[in-house]
Nucleic acid binder design. Sequence first.
DNA 1: AGCCATTGGTTGACGTGTCATCCAACCGCG
DNA 2: CGCGGTTGGATGACACGTCAACCAATGGCT
Lengths: 174, 174
Amino acid sequence: METHPLTAREQRAWEGYRRMQGLLASQLNRHLLRETGLSEADFVILDALLAAPDHRLRSLALRCEVQWEKSRLSHHLARMQQRGLVAREECPEDSRGAVFRLTDAGRAAVTAAAGHRVAAIRSYLLDLLTPEQMDTLGDVSEAVLTRLAREDPHRHAIAELARPDPGARSNPGA
Amino acid sequence: METHPLTAREQRAWEGYRRMQGLLASQLNRHLLRETGLSEADFVILDALLAAPDHRLRSLALRCEVQWEKSRLSHHLARMQQRGLVAREECPEDSRGAVFRLTDAGRAAVTAAAGHRVAAIRSYLLDLLTPEQMDTLGDVSEAVLTRLAREDPHRHAIAELARPDPGARSNPGA
DNA sequence: AGCCATTGGTTGACGTGTCATCCAACCGCG
DNA sequence: CGCGGTTGGATGACACGTCAACCAATGGCT
Protein backbone atom coordinates (compact mmCIF):
# COMPACT_ATOMS: atom_id res chain seq x y z
CA MET A 1 0.00 0.00 0.00
CA GLU A 2 1.37 3.36 -1.04
CA THR A 3 0.68 6.06 1.47
CA HIS A 4 2.73 9.09 2.36
CA PRO A 5 3.79 9.66 5.91
CA LEU A 6 1.84 12.28 7.83
CA THR A 7 2.86 15.89 7.43
CA ALA A 8 4.17 17.67 10.50
CA ARG A 9 0.81 19.36 10.93
CA GLU A 10 -1.09 16.09 10.64
CA GLN A 11 1.39 14.41 12.96
CA ARG A 12 0.88 17.03 15.63
CA ALA A 13 -2.90 16.72 15.45
CA TRP A 14 -2.98 12.94 15.30
CA GLU A 15 -0.26 12.19 17.82
CA GLY A 16 -1.59 14.78 20.25
CA TYR A 17 -5.10 13.46 19.90
CA ARG A 18 -4.04 9.82 20.18
CA ARG A 19 -2.05 10.38 23.35
CA MET A 20 -4.63 12.68 24.86
CA GLN A 21 -7.66 10.49 24.27
CA GLY A 22 -6.07 7.48 25.93
CA LEU A 23 -4.85 9.34 28.98
CA LEU A 24 -8.01 11.42 29.37
CA ALA A 25 -10.31 8.39 29.12
CA SER A 26 -8.37 6.45 31.70
CA GLN A 27 -8.05 9.44 34.04
CA LEU A 28 -11.79 10.24 33.89
CA ASN A 29 -12.61 6.58 34.39
CA ARG A 30 -10.23 6.19 37.32
CA HIS A 31 -11.52 9.37 38.96
CA LEU A 32 -15.18 8.47 38.56
CA LEU A 33 -14.66 4.92 39.81
CA ARG A 34 -12.71 6.09 42.83
CA GLU A 35 -15.22 8.82 43.72
CA THR A 36 -18.44 6.96 43.01
CA GLY A 37 -17.91 3.26 42.43
CA LEU A 38 -19.23 3.59 38.89
CA SER A 39 -17.17 3.27 35.77
CA GLU A 40 -17.76 5.57 32.80
CA ALA A 41 -19.46 2.67 31.02
CA ASP A 42 -21.73 2.10 34.03
CA PHE A 43 -22.63 5.77 34.08
CA VAL A 44 -23.53 5.92 30.41
CA ILE A 45 -25.92 2.98 30.75
CA LEU A 46 -27.52 4.18 33.97
CA ASP A 47 -27.91 7.70 32.62
CA ALA A 48 -29.68 6.42 29.53
CA LEU A 49 -32.10 4.46 31.74
CA LEU A 50 -32.61 7.44 34.04
CA ALA A 51 -33.77 9.49 31.07
CA ALA A 52 -36.04 6.81 29.60
CA PRO A 53 -39.79 6.53 30.16
CA ASP A 54 -40.37 4.53 33.37
CA HIS A 55 -36.59 4.24 33.66
CA ARG A 56 -36.82 1.28 31.30
CA LEU A 57 -35.34 0.52 27.93
CA ARG A 58 -35.33 -2.51 25.77
CA SER A 59 -31.84 -3.81 25.10
CA LEU A 60 -32.16 -2.96 21.42
CA ALA A 61 -33.09 0.66 22.11
CA LEU A 62 -30.38 0.98 24.74
CA ARG A 63 -27.87 -0.39 22.28
CA CYS A 64 -28.94 2.20 19.73
CA GLU A 65 -28.58 4.91 22.37
CA VAL A 66 -25.07 4.03 23.54
CA GLN A 67 -23.82 2.56 20.24
CA TRP A 68 -22.02 -0.43 21.70
CA GLU A 69 -21.58 -3.82 20.16
CA LYS A 70 -24.32 -6.18 21.23
CA SER A 71 -22.15 -8.61 23.13
CA ARG A 72 -20.41 -5.78 24.97
CA LEU A 73 -23.80 -4.50 26.09
CA SER A 74 -25.02 -7.96 26.99
CA HIS A 75 -21.98 -8.73 29.11
CA HIS A 76 -21.98 -5.33 30.78
CA LEU A 77 -25.70 -5.43 31.60
CA ALA A 78 -25.23 -8.89 33.12
CA ARG A 79 -22.50 -7.56 35.39
CA MET A 80 -24.60 -4.51 36.34
CA GLN A 81 -27.55 -6.78 37.07
CA GLN A 82 -25.29 -8.80 39.35
CA ARG A 83 -24.36 -5.59 41.20
CA GLY A 84 -28.01 -4.67 41.59
CA LEU A 85 -27.83 -1.55 39.47
CA VAL A 86 -30.36 -2.72 36.88
CA ALA A 87 -33.05 -5.39 36.66
CA ARG A 88 -33.97 -7.49 33.64
CA GLU A 89 -37.57 -7.96 32.51
CA GLU A 90 -39.29 -9.73 29.65
CA CYS A 91 -40.08 -7.71 26.57
CA PRO A 92 -43.89 -7.52 26.16
CA GLU A 93 -43.78 -7.04 22.38
CA ASP A 94 -41.03 -9.44 21.36
CA SER A 95 -40.23 -12.63 23.26
CA ARG A 96 -36.68 -12.50 22.02
CA GLY A 97 -36.15 -9.14 23.63
CA ALA A 98 -35.05 -8.03 27.09
CA VAL A 99 -36.06 -4.87 28.93
CA PHE A 100 -33.73 -3.37 31.52
CA ARG A 101 -34.99 -1.22 34.36
CA LEU A 102 -33.06 1.10 36.62
CA THR A 103 -33.24 -0.17 40.21
CA ASP A 104 -33.45 2.13 43.24
CA ALA A 105 -29.79 1.43 43.95
CA GLY A 106 -28.88 2.21 40.37
CA ARG A 107 -30.87 5.43 40.43
CA ALA A 108 -29.22 6.56 43.65
CA ALA A 109 -25.77 5.70 42.31
CA VAL A 110 -26.09 7.53 39.03
CA THR A 111 -27.70 10.56 40.64
CA ALA A 112 -24.91 10.77 43.19
CA ALA A 113 -22.26 10.31 40.50
CA ALA A 114 -23.48 12.96 38.07
CA GLY A 115 -21.96 15.93 39.86
CA HIS A 116 -18.57 14.26 40.32
CA ARG A 117 -18.51 13.33 36.68
CA VAL A 118 -19.37 16.81 35.42
CA ALA A 119 -16.77 18.33 37.72
CA ALA A 120 -14.08 16.04 36.36
CA ILE A 121 -15.08 16.64 32.73
CA ARG A 122 -14.86 20.38 33.35
CA SER A 123 -11.56 20.14 35.17
CA TYR A 124 -9.78 17.87 32.69
CA LEU A 125 -11.32 19.17 29.45
CA LEU A 126 -14.02 21.82 29.18
CA ASP A 127 -12.53 24.50 31.39
CA LEU A 128 -9.29 24.36 29.40
CA LEU A 129 -10.95 25.36 26.14
CA THR A 130 -11.90 28.66 24.55
CA PRO A 131 -15.46 28.88 23.17
CA GLU A 132 -14.04 28.54 19.64
CA GLN A 133 -12.05 25.46 20.57
CA MET A 134 -15.13 23.95 22.16
CA ASP A 135 -17.17 24.51 19.01
CA THR A 136 -14.41 23.09 16.84
CA LEU A 137 -14.21 20.00 19.05
CA GLY A 138 -17.94 19.54 18.50
CA ASP A 139 -17.56 20.06 14.74
CA VAL A 140 -14.66 17.61 14.46
CA SER A 141 -16.56 15.01 16.47
CA GLU A 142 -19.63 15.41 14.29
CA ALA A 143 -17.59 14.98 11.12
CA VAL A 144 -15.92 11.84 12.41
CA LEU A 145 -19.22 10.36 13.61
CA THR A 146 -20.77 11.01 10.21
CA ARG A 147 -17.83 9.30 8.54
CA LEU A 148 -18.05 6.31 10.86
CA ALA A 149 -21.76 5.98 10.25
CA ARG A 150 -21.06 5.66 6.51
CA GLU A 151 -18.61 2.88 7.19
CA ASP A 152 -21.10 0.58 8.79
CA PRO A 153 -24.64 1.89 8.55
CA HIS A 154 -25.98 -0.96 10.62
CA ARG A 155 -23.53 -0.43 13.41
CA HIS A 156 -23.73 3.29 13.78
CA ALA A 157 -26.62 4.87 11.95
CA ILE A 158 -29.13 3.03 14.10
CA ALA A 159 -28.26 5.53 16.80
CA GLU A 160 -30.93 7.74 15.34
CA LEU A 161 -33.48 5.17 16.37
CA ALA A 162 -32.94 5.94 20.01
CA ARG A 163 -33.22 9.69 20.31
CA PRO A 164 -33.32 12.11 17.41
CA ASP A 165 -33.09 15.26 19.50
CA PRO A 166 -30.27 15.17 22.08
CA GLY A 167 -30.77 18.84 22.88
CA ALA A 168 -33.97 18.01 24.68
CA ARG A 169 -32.11 16.30 27.51
CA SER A 170 -32.21 17.96 30.90
CA ASN A 171 -29.66 15.68 32.55
CA PRO A 172 -26.19 16.55 31.25
CA GLY A 173 -24.23 13.44 32.18
CA ALA A 174 -24.32 11.52 28.95
CA MET B 1 -21.14 18.19 45.36
CA GLU B 2 -22.64 21.27 43.79
CA THR B 3 -21.98 21.53 40.08
CA HIS B 4 -24.11 22.97 37.34
CA PRO B 5 -25.15 20.84 34.42
CA LEU B 6 -23.26 21.41 31.22
CA THR B 7 -24.41 24.23 28.98
CA ALA B 8 -25.75 23.26 25.56
CA ARG B 9 -22.46 24.28 24.01
CA GLU B 10 -20.44 22.25 26.50
CA GLN B 11 -22.82 19.33 26.09
CA ARG B 12 -22.38 19.31 22.32
CA ALA B 13 -18.59 19.36 22.63
CA TRP B 14 -18.38 16.78 25.39
CA GLU B 15 -21.04 14.40 24.18
CA GLY B 16 -19.77 14.56 20.61
CA TYR B 17 -16.21 13.98 21.72
CA ARG B 18 -17.15 11.19 24.10
CA ARG B 19 -19.10 9.25 21.49
CA MET B 20 -16.60 9.91 18.76
CA GLN B 21 -13.50 8.88 20.67
CA GLY B 22 -14.98 5.51 21.65
CA LEU B 23 -16.19 4.64 18.18
CA LEU B 24 -13.09 5.96 16.41
CA ALA B 25 -10.70 4.08 18.68
CA SER B 26 -12.52 0.80 18.24
CA GLN B 27 -12.91 1.26 14.47
CA LEU B 28 -9.22 2.08 13.97
CA ASN B 29 -8.24 -0.85 16.17
CA ARG B 30 -10.56 -3.28 14.41
CA HIS B 31 -9.39 -2.13 11.00
CA LEU B 32 -5.68 -2.37 11.86
CA LEU B 33 -6.08 -5.78 13.48
CA ARG B 34 -8.00 -7.16 10.53
CA GLU B 35 -5.59 -5.76 7.94
CA THR B 36 -2.31 -6.47 9.71
CA GLY B 37 -2.75 -8.71 12.73
CA LEU B 38 -1.47 -5.92 14.99
CA SER B 39 -3.57 -4.01 17.46
CA GLU B 40 -3.11 -0.27 17.94
CA ALA B 41 -1.35 -1.00 21.23
CA ASP B 42 0.99 -3.46 19.46
CA PHE B 43 1.76 -0.86 16.84
CA VAL B 44 2.59 1.87 19.31
CA ILE B 45 5.08 -0.38 21.10
CA LEU B 46 6.70 -1.72 17.95
CA ASP B 47 6.94 1.72 16.43
CA ALA B 48 8.72 3.06 19.49
CA LEU B 49 11.24 0.22 19.27
CA LEU B 50 11.67 0.73 15.53
CA ALA B 51 12.71 4.31 16.17
CA ALA B 52 15.04 3.51 19.07
CA PRO B 53 18.82 3.07 18.80
CA ASP B 54 19.52 -0.59 17.94
CA HIS B 55 15.75 -1.13 17.98
CA ARG B 56 16.06 -1.57 21.73
CA LEU B 57 14.55 0.22 24.69
CA ARG B 58 14.61 -0.39 28.37
CA SER B 59 11.16 -0.99 29.79
CA LEU B 60 11.40 2.23 31.79
CA ALA B 61 12.21 4.34 28.74
CA LEU B 62 9.52 2.61 26.70
CA ARG B 63 7.05 3.28 29.44
CA CYS B 64 7.98 6.95 29.40
CA GLU B 65 7.55 6.98 25.64
CA VAL B 66 4.09 5.40 25.48
CA GLN B 67 2.83 6.65 28.85
CA TRP B 68 1.17 3.45 29.96
CA GLU B 69 0.81 2.12 33.46
CA LYS B 70 3.67 -0.19 34.32
CA SER B 71 1.64 -3.34 34.72
CA ARG B 72 -0.17 -2.69 31.46
CA LEU B 73 3.19 -2.44 29.72
CA SER B 74 4.55 -5.48 31.51
CA HIS B 75 1.56 -7.64 30.58
CA HIS B 76 1.47 -6.42 26.99
CA LEU B 77 5.20 -6.94 26.44
CA ALA B 78 4.86 -10.46 27.82
CA ARG B 79 2.14 -11.23 25.28
CA MET B 80 4.13 -9.65 22.44
CA GLN B 81 7.18 -11.66 23.48
CA GLN B 82 5.03 -14.78 23.32
CA ARG B 83 4.02 -13.83 19.76
CA GLY B 84 7.66 -13.35 18.79
CA LEU B 85 7.31 -9.63 18.09
CA VAL B 86 9.84 -8.53 20.73
CA ALA B 87 12.63 -10.18 22.70
CA ARG B 88 13.56 -9.51 26.31
CA GLU B 89 17.16 -8.92 27.39
CA GLU B 90 18.90 -8.10 30.64
CA CYS B 91 19.56 -4.47 31.38
CA PRO B 92 23.37 -3.91 31.48
CA GLU B 93 23.17 -0.92 33.83
CA ASP B 94 20.49 -1.99 36.29
CA SER B 95 19.86 -5.62 37.18
CA ARG B 96 16.28 -4.79 38.04
CA GLY B 97 15.66 -3.55 34.54
CA ALA B 98 14.58 -5.24 31.33
CA VAL B 99 15.47 -4.28 27.77
CA PHE B 100 13.14 -5.11 24.91
CA ARG B 101 14.36 -5.55 21.38
CA LEU B 102 12.39 -5.57 18.17
CA THR B 103 12.67 -8.97 16.52
CA ASP B 104 12.86 -9.49 12.74
CA ALA B 105 9.24 -10.62 12.77
CA GLY B 106 8.24 -7.56 14.77
CA ARG B 107 10.09 -5.27 12.42
CA ALA B 108 8.44 -6.80 9.38
CA ALA B 109 5.02 -6.59 10.99
CA VAL B 110 5.23 -2.96 12.03
CA THR B 111 6.76 -1.91 8.73
CA ALA B 112 3.99 -3.65 6.82
CA ALA B 113 1.33 -2.18 9.09
CA ALA B 114 2.42 1.45 8.92
CA GLY B 115 0.82 2.25 5.59
CA HIS B 116 -2.50 0.64 6.49
CA ARG B 117 -2.58 2.54 9.74
CA VAL B 118 -1.84 5.91 8.16
CA ALA B 119 -4.46 5.29 5.48
CA ALA B 120 -7.10 4.53 8.11
CA ILE B 121 -6.17 7.54 10.25
CA ARG B 122 -6.51 9.75 7.17
CA SER B 123 -9.79 8.18 6.09
CA TYR B 124 -11.51 8.28 9.48
CA LEU B 125 -10.06 11.51 10.84
CA LEU B 126 -7.44 13.69 9.13
CA ASP B 127 -9.01 13.97 5.69
CA LEU B 128 -12.27 15.16 7.25
CA LEU B 129 -10.70 18.24 8.84
CA THR B 130 -9.87 21.72 7.62
CA PRO B 131 -6.33 22.96 8.39
CA GLU B 132 -7.78 25.18 11.15
CA GLN B 133 -9.65 22.25 12.70
CA MET B 134 -6.52 20.17 12.59
CA ASP B 135 -4.52 22.86 14.38
CA THR B 136 -7.26 23.31 16.97
CA LEU B 137 -7.34 19.56 17.61
CA GLY B 138 -3.60 19.74 18.25
CA ASP B 139 -4.04 22.74 20.56
CA VAL B 140 -6.87 21.10 22.53
CA SER B 141 -4.86 17.91 22.92
CA GLU B 142 -1.84 19.83 24.13
CA ALA B 143 -3.90 21.71 26.71
CA VAL B 144 -5.45 18.50 28.04
CA LEU B 145 -2.09 16.72 28.18
CA THR B 146 -0.61 19.64 30.12
CA ARG B 147 -3.50 19.49 32.54
CA LEU B 148 -3.16 15.73 33.00
CA ALA B 149 0.56 16.08 33.62
CA ARG B 150 -0.17 18.46 36.50
CA GLU B 151 -2.54 15.92 38.00
CA ASP B 152 0.05 13.25 38.47
CA PRO B 153 3.55 14.44 37.68
CA HIS B 154 4.98 11.00 38.21
CA ARG B 155 2.57 9.34 35.88
CA HIS B 156 2.64 11.76 32.98
CA ALA B 157 5.47 14.26 33.16
CA ILE B 158 8.06 11.51 32.89
CA ALA B 159 7.11 11.36 29.24
CA GLU B 160 9.70 14.04 28.70
CA LEU B 161 12.35 11.58 29.75
CA ALA B 162 11.84 9.52 26.64
CA ARG B 163 12.04 11.96 23.79
CA PRO B 164 12.24 15.73 24.20
CA ASP B 165 11.82 16.53 20.53
CA PRO B 166 8.98 14.64 18.81
CA GLY B 167 9.38 16.70 15.66
CA ALA B 168 12.63 14.91 14.90
CA ARG B 169 10.84 11.68 14.08
CA SER B 170 10.90 10.49 10.51
CA ASN B 171 8.47 7.60 10.96
CA PRO B 172 4.94 8.97 11.28
CA GLY B 173 3.11 6.02 12.84
CA ALA B 174 3.20 6.86 16.49
C1' DA C 1 -50.12 -21.86 6.37
C1' DG C 2 -45.38 -22.87 5.72
C1' DC C 3 -40.73 -21.62 4.69
C1' DC C 4 -36.62 -19.17 5.14
C1' DA C 5 -33.74 -15.23 5.94
C1' DT C 6 -33.08 -11.99 9.37
C1' DT C 7 -32.99 -10.38 13.95
C1' DG C 8 -32.41 -9.90 19.24
C1' DG C 9 -29.88 -11.38 22.67
C1' DT C 10 -26.84 -14.66 25.04
C1' DT C 11 -22.63 -17.22 25.77
C1' DG C 12 -17.86 -18.81 25.83
C1' DA C 13 -13.14 -18.08 24.75
C1' DC C 14 -9.70 -15.03 24.85
C1' DG C 15 -7.16 -10.63 24.53
C1' DT C 16 -6.72 -6.36 27.19
C1' DG C 17 -6.14 -3.05 31.12
C1' DT C 18 -6.38 -1.84 36.19
C1' DC C 19 -5.32 -2.51 40.91
C1' DA C 20 -2.80 -4.25 44.70
C1' DT C 21 1.06 -6.67 46.07
C1' DC C 22 5.58 -8.48 45.95
C1' DC C 23 10.65 -8.64 45.57
C1' DA C 24 15.27 -7.60 44.31
C1' DA C 25 18.28 -3.77 43.12
C1' DC C 26 19.60 0.90 43.62
C1' DC C 27 20.99 5.04 45.92
C1' DG C 28 21.36 8.56 49.46
C1' DC C 29 22.58 9.35 54.05
C1' DG C 30 24.74 8.85 58.54
C1' DC D 1 29.90 0.10 55.39
C1' DG D 2 25.17 -0.53 56.71
C1' DC D 3 20.53 0.89 56.68
C1' DG D 4 16.27 2.25 54.92
C1' DG D 5 13.45 4.40 51.49
C1' DT D 6 12.60 4.32 46.70
C1' DT D 7 12.43 2.22 42.34
C1' DG D 8 11.88 -1.18 38.24
C1' DG D 9 9.47 -4.75 36.85
C1' DA D 10 6.67 -8.87 37.42
C1' DT D 11 2.50 -11.27 38.92
C1' DG D 12 -2.25 -12.59 40.09
C1' DA D 13 -7.02 -11.50 40.39
C1' DC D 14 -10.56 -9.52 38.20
C1' DA D 15 -13.25 -6.22 35.31
C1' DC D 16 -13.83 -5.22 30.55
C1' DG D 17 -14.44 -5.60 25.37
C1' DT D 18 -14.17 -8.32 20.93
C1' DC D 19 -15.14 -12.17 18.10
C1' DA D 20 -17.55 -16.17 16.60
C1' DA D 21 -21.21 -19.12 17.28
C1' DC D 22 -25.66 -20.29 18.80
C1' DC D 23 -30.80 -20.33 19.23
C1' DA D 24 -35.49 -18.88 19.44
C1' DA D 25 -38.65 -15.41 17.64
C1' DT D 26 -40.09 -12.44 14.01
C1' DG D 27 -41.66 -11.07 9.59
C1' DG D 28 -41.87 -11.12 4.61
C1' DC D 29 -43.00 -13.85 0.79
C1' DT D 30 -45.14 -17.55 -1.80
